[in-house]
């Protein structure tokens, strides 16, 4: 299973993503620069955290027009797995691959800490190896992580079981309905503010993020078996 880690000017979670793929599942992974226009070699696309294009205007607003984003959209349409983490989540909402938007934290502070999040849906390609209702400790590091969408969109997200992660115990940023991560209708595009790629070893404070990568590999292999049978 081949992974691409998209690199924008200002990305800073790209190395973490790359190492997490190598370390957690040992699959081939490449950095792909924002000017690339072809992602057909890859089965999964990771859009990392950071401050793409300095987050000028709005977080992700300029990154969404990078040449590589057309290829990301095509990959999503083809059903490939697209995972946007932190700034990557912001880019996916700006690109309208996911609904809603991420706005300034309610406290106005940049928050860098471990957060407790609950797995609300373990039937996505990103969460297969988690138990439903399981609580994970995953680090967050963001200033604009407050998820917002209107009432109608929220009702739809709930009805379609697309809220994949919710904050529990404490909502660090004021997001609507305690949302920490959501997926698209097909379930192949996931965006979340917490950083699973920074939680792949006990000595990093938590290894709860590791199974997001093992889940993706298992989902990919299951899909391939279906195709070959």
């Amino acid at each position: 299973m081949r992974f691409a880690v998209i690199v924008f000017p200002g990305s800073n979670g790209d190395i973490d993503c790359y190492k997490a793929v190598e370390d957690a599942i040992g699959q081939p992974v490449d950095y792909v620069w924002h000017t690339a226009t072809d992602l057909s070699d890859y089965d999964a696309i990771l859009i990392p955290g950071g401050f793409s294009y300095g987050d000028y205007l709005r977080c992700g607003a300029i990154a969404r027009f990078a040449p590589v984003m057309d290829a990301v959209r095509r990959a999503a349409d083809e059903g490939k797995f697209v995972l946007g983490i932190c700034n990557g989540f912001q880019v996916l909402t700006e690109a309208r691959l996911l609904p809603g938007a991420l706005i300034r934290n309610r406290t106005l502070k940049f928050i860098c800490q471990l957060a407790d999040i609950k797995v609300e849906n373990n039937r996505t390609p990103f969460t297969l190896d988690y138990e439903e209702g399981e609580i994970l400790r995953i680090p967050i590091a963001h200033g604009e992580g407050c998820y917002y969408c209107d009432e109608a969109k929220l009702a739809r997200l709930k009805a379609e079981n697309r809220i994949v992660f919710r904050y529990v115990h404490e909502n660090p940023n004021g997001s609507i309905d305690d949302i920490a991560g959501i997926c698209n209708e097909r379930g192949n595009v996931l965006g979340l503010m917490p950083h699973p790629e920074r939680a792949v070893h006990k000595w990093l404070g938590s290894d709860d993020g590791r199974r997001m990568f093992t889940s993706m590999l298992r989902a990919y292999e299951a899909r391939r078996r279906e195709v070959t049978v």
Partner: peptide, 8 residues
Amino acid sequence: KLLANTVI
């Protein structure tokens, strides 16, 4: 397209 995000 760019200057405003009409979602918010």
